Simulated scan of single mutants.
Amino acid sequence: MAYETISFSTNNGISTLMLNRPQVMNALNSKMREEITQALNSVDEKTRCVVMTGAGAAFCSGQDLTDVAAAEDVEGILRREYEPMLQAVINCRAPVIAAVNGAAAGAGANLALTADVVIAVESAYFAQAFTKIGLIPDAGGTWILPRLVGNARAMGMMLFAEKIPAAQAEEWGMIWQSVPEAGFVEAVQERARQLAGGPTSAYLSVRRAIRESGASDFAKQLDLEAELQGQAGRSADFREGVTAFLEKRAPKFSGK
């Protein structure tokens, strides 16, 4: 499928989704939100990992403020366009790495933080810039950020709208890793290859267990763990993992 605002390709089980409006720091307009949603919803069993990144110097600067339709119907745009896009990230059939290659601001920051793993170049930053234009954080930010960094830091980020450098974001536990520019691309690709060669169904169950834990008590979470572990225990990947361990070799997971 041909896209106008993103590029999307798959190679050796790794799909790369690149936000491709570098002239506006990959600001999100209606077409881009639609195409991100379409691309992620198109992921099938051939994809074992998705890498989401930005073209040029930024990851994503957030909402395109020249988008008149969005300015006139903020609530409607969130419901019709942002929610399906973010759900497409959450429900993707493969683990998603956000490779934050530069500025991630506003909805762009929260799009990145929705991914399963966030790896950022050291020169990148994250900003909840909404209050600078009289809005509140959206795109899932008020749900995601407190769970990552706690209420105090989330509140400070959202009220003061200050830039948080990638190294500080790593220190806070907001992201997985901050990487020097010289090794950034290879670091992302190495992690993507690792996930693409791993037990995909187990990874997705880990994602589900973690995300549901916030609304569960201990007993309910134990029950969910048993259910998901039962599924994993019946998988071809579990059989291969045990066989490889006993044969003292590296496993060759199929993702099934």
Rank of each mutant, 00 (worst) to 15 (best):
E190R: 06
I164C: 14
E72A: 11
R21H: 05
G54W: 06
S201P: 00
S9C: 08
R21L: 13
F218E: 03
S201E: 10
G56V: 05
Q229S: 15
S216E: 13
G106A: 10
C92L: 01
S178V: 02
F130C: 03
V50N: 02
L145I: 15
E171G: 04
S178L: 02
P146N: 10
A166V: 08
M174T: 04
G54P: 00
K256D: 15
S7Q: 13
R80H: 03
E227Y: 08
N91W: 01
S205T: 03
A124D: 01
L148V: 04
A152Y: 14
V149N: 04
K252Q: 15
E227N: 03
I144V: 12
V206R: 10
G108W: 09
M174G: 03
I6D: 04
G230K: 07
G173N: 01
E190P: 00
V96W: 03
A107Y: 08
P146Q: 12
F160A: 11
V121T: 03
N151A: 14
Q128L: 14
I90D: 06
A71Q: 11
V96R: 08
R211K: 12
L159C: 01
K31T: 15
L204Y: 08
E34G: 08
P22Y: 14
L19S: 05
D116N: 11
R208K: 14
I133T: 09
E227K: 06
V179W: 05
L19M: 09
L224K: 04
E162L: 12
A103V: 07
I144D: 00
A232G: 08
T114M: 15
N12T: 07
A232E: 06
Q189V: 00
V206K: 13
I144A: 03
A192V: 01
Q63N: 15
L86R: 03
G102R: 06
E34A: 12
V51N: 03
L246I: 13
A124H: 00
T47V: 13
